[in-house]
Amino acid sequence: MSDPSLILFEVFVRSNRGLDHQHVGSVYASDHEQALVNARDVYIRRGEGVSIWVVKTDDIVASQESDVDTFYDPMDDKAYRHAMSYPMPEGVKNI
């Protein structure tokens, strides 16, 4: 897409009531309203969703895996944060 007057939008779709919106892709459009229409045409032609969010791609700030090591630290040294690190007495139920 080379038309400089068009804006890139990221598209998020809620596939069913009760679920979070999920990123599905992007569309070009001249404004938010048009982006919604385009997103509907591109991404939910077969009832894949009940709600669409469009967000200007430029408005999304993303972290980079390489930015900071600790940003994605899985905290493997903090096993105590997991329920499984507390052995329960034999026979105890519902805990």
């Binding site: 105590y80 944060r81 997991h82 329920a83 507390y86 329960m88 007495p89 105890v92 805990i95």
Partner: peptide, 13 residues
Amino acid sequence: ESFHQRQGYDIMV
């Protein structure tokens, strides 16, 4: 929450 309850029970044990 499961971690929360278990750490508490573990203290009691």
